[in-house]
Design a protein around this nucleic acid. Structure first.
Lengths: 195, 195
DNA sequence: CGATTCTTTGAAAACAGTCAATCTGTGTGG
DNA sequence: CCACACAGATTGACTGTTTTCAAAGAATCG
């Protein structure tokens, strides 16, 4: 059930053969998370590549004041994890937990890298994902450089409508770098446009 | 002269053979930019991979009010360009211009991708760069989520001391997402710590 | 329901932005 | 060598946006 979604994704995004899909499946483990359960906790080392097949998780830091800052969300067919910890082998600054009961496919670092070496089509797909992730984060940086609270929210609405009624509003605020109160006010204002 | 820096960089970062280095050199073109000269102008399609061997360039957008928002800087041994336009083939939203007289190595997309296919060590290096770029941009997003103007500046000081007396202060402000006036005040405050 | 979680609202304060003027340093041409 | 122009940096006064803190209102769920 869980691997179905993942293998369909791979087929859609690449030319990986059915035979190679079996190799990938052999290295995949299914991870179930209940709502609020951690996938990764600050201070732990992250050792996987993770793909969400069901549900929704968030990646966030907690600052000295105890305020959470959401780095990103991941729903079905999105990847998640902490690349920095994965690459460096150092403890992560991030927490990842589930916003809903969720299912993920995990592939540990070593087997994953082996799969990439063995299966060029897989490697190519993975690289394309990395490239698009990078572009997306550059884009997000632009929003911080140039947009007001309201503009950031309106752009979020357009870009991620799937997340609107799935993620608590306060978390969207956190993702946008504003307070829940500000987001609430921004929503009120932008409902009645100036006449 | 220009290619020297690039080939030294490749040797430091990878196991590319001298023979393969010649292949790379064959596809490289040297581009000289005078101060203020554009490497890329908004609306153009970006078709290269670019490596700075001398000088300093910046990547930025200009909003409706005419305000510049600096996406990043690149000095010696840094890469630059617009990956989004390169990947999509669409016109770029960015401008890139030189802050000093500069020299870059350009390799057009097609030859570059061919080199990656032919030279696994080169491909590996390029991928590592992409991975680290992604991590760096995730890190920058965190600064926008959690830091004040002053904290962002202090972190910039630590992280990029090479840029401090090389890039006009107003541009650093733009990079941090604050106004030049605010940066000036932040600097004054942070010189006299609280007694 | 009753309890928890999430959202909204209000008033005050903090922070950063705007606009305009002044100051500083650098380089150029007379 | 000086005077001037120019770009960059600073300062002051003011405005505006966003945050903070506290409380009240929905919404959701066992």
């Amino acid at each position: 059930m869980g691997f179905e979604v993942f293998s369909q994704y791979i087929k859609d995004k690449s030319q990986v053969s059915d035979k190679d899909l079996l190799l990938i499946e052999a290295q995949s483990q299914l991870k179930r998370l209940r709502k609020r359960q951690y996938l990764l906790q600050e201070g732990e080392v992250w050792r996987f590549n993770a793909f969400v097949t069901k549900g929704c998780v968030r990646t966030y830091t907690v600052d000295e004041k105890g305020i959470e800052h959401i780095q990103n969300f991941a729903i079905e067919n999105w990847w998640t994890g902490d690349r920095e910890s994965l690459l460096s082998g150092k403890p992560s600054r991030f927490n990842i937990d589930a916003l809903e009961d969720s299912e993920l496919i995990l592939i540990a670092k070593q087997p994953f890298d082996d799969l990439c070496k063995k299966i060029p089509a897989f490697s190519g797909m993975v690289n394309g994902i990395l490239e698009r992730s990078f572009i997306a984060s550059q884009d997000r940086i632009q929003t911080f450089l140039s947009l007001s609270a309201e503009e950031k929210y309106l752009q979020f609405l357009k870009k991620y409508p799937q997340l609107i009624n799935r993620v608590p509003q306060a978390m969207i605020a956190s993702y946008l770098g504003i307070t829940p109160e500000t987001l609430s006010r921004v929503r009120r204002e932008s409902q009645r446009p100036k006449p």
